[in-house]
């Protein structure tokens, strides 16, 4: 653009810009299309925040109350809106999923970027894309028909229960059908695997090839190079990957709701049925009336989810800024 205007001015080949050119309508149109996302986010935040504070403003529930461990909207002495079981379950189910998924995903990312020959990449990468595409209801249904019955059997298997450490974990008394914290974490770990893998893969690819050849030329093995050079230099990228995986896991609703058992109790064992923020919203939204305190509590939960996701966006930005800085 700059060259054209300079050339025009110098040679005077083109007339002064007319009204049409000065208005530059195409530029305005494409700008509006891009800026519409800002409007959507702003509106979404305003609406969810407004609905989310009604529980405190209109229904007179104090902020301290929502951190109580008792959830009973139909209690005789007035409804009790303690979110602590849901918040704890969201954190623990997400944490469990990340504990399972992170080593696997980072390993897979290393495999793709350092080890895999081209033919293996050509198989694994498209497979990951198919993984991403599998809808969450399908993951939930797989969880119900395959994973949950398997876990239910395992929880009661005499051999498993007789094992030293594993047995103690699985023989916790309670309602052991297979619908559990563990089932939720396992389903989520498969769902976030492609997210973590692809972001970590990009981070490993971004490490300059010279550093690799330099390290190998000094006589290190490939694993020493990965451990002492690649992982430290890509650490912020791997961290970003984990945060993005966490965001996806904490926000996933339907698949978790289908396998977690939906019991609003405080988490005590990985074999126990729980309820997360998302699964409680999914379950109750259709059964409540707009404007009643029970539904207002659900809006407050979605405000908490919104705050979690915006925080993670900021967190990713901070991590990346630090990487650019160093």
């Amino acid at each position: 653009m700059a060259q054209v205007t300079t050339a025009t001015r110098l040679t005077g080949l083109r007339a002064a810009p007319g009204l049409r050119e000065r208005l530059d309508i195409p530029k305005r149109v494409v700008f509006l299309a891009a800026a519409s996302m800002v409007a959507i986010v702003a509106l979404l935040m305003i609406f969810i925040a407004w609905q989310g504070i009604q529980l405190f403003v209109k229904d007179g529930v104090s902020i301290g109350e929502i951190f109580s461990p008792t959830w009973n909207p139909l209690a005789d002495g007035g409804p009790q809106f303690g979110f602590l079981p849901f918040i704890a379950a969201t954190i623990l189910v997400t944490g469990g999923a990340l504990l399972i998924s992170t080593p696997l995903s980072v390993g897979l990312a290393l495999f793709l970027s350092e080890v895999a020959p081209n033919w293996a990449k050509a198989i694994v990468q498209p497979s990951l894309e198919i993984f991403v595409g599998i809808p969450s209801v399908v993951w939930g249904w797989l969880g119900i028909t395959v994973l949950v019955p398997f876990l239910g059997k395992t929880f009661h298997d005499p051999f498993v229960v007789s094992l030293p450490v594993v047995g103690q974990v699985f023989s916790v008394p309670g309602f052991l059908t297979g619908f559990s914290w563990l089932a939720g974490s396992l389903v989520l770990s498969v769902m976030v695997l492609p997210t973590i893998t692809s972001v970590a893969y990009d981070a490993f690819r971004a490490v300059p090839q010279e550093l690799r050849t330099g390290s190998l030329a000094l006589g290190t093995t490939r694993w020493q190079m990965i451990r002492h050079l690649l992982i430290p230099s890509a650490l912020s990228g791997v961290l970003t990957a984990v945060v993005l995986g966490m965001t996806r896991a904490a926000g996933e609703a339907l698949a978790v709701q289908m396998v977690i058992g939906n019991s609003p109790s405080m988490p005590a064992a990985i074999t126990q049925p729980l309820t997360t923020l998302t699964s409680q919203i999914t379950l109750d939204m259709g059964n409540t009336v707009f404007g009643e305190p029970w539904q207002d509590a659900l809006w407050t939960m979605s405000l908490i989810l919104l705050i979690i996701s915006v925080t993670s966006v900021v967190l990713v930005r901070v991590i990346n800024k630090r990487r650019m800085g160093s």
């Binding site: 996806r248 998302t278 979605s302 966006v313």
Partner: peptide
């Protein structure tokens, strides 16, 4: 980035 990270259920509620 914000819309991409907002849970789909929250977008549905919006």
């Amino acid at each position: 980035e914000a819309i991409s990270s907002v849970p789909s259920i929250v977008v549905g509620l919006f």
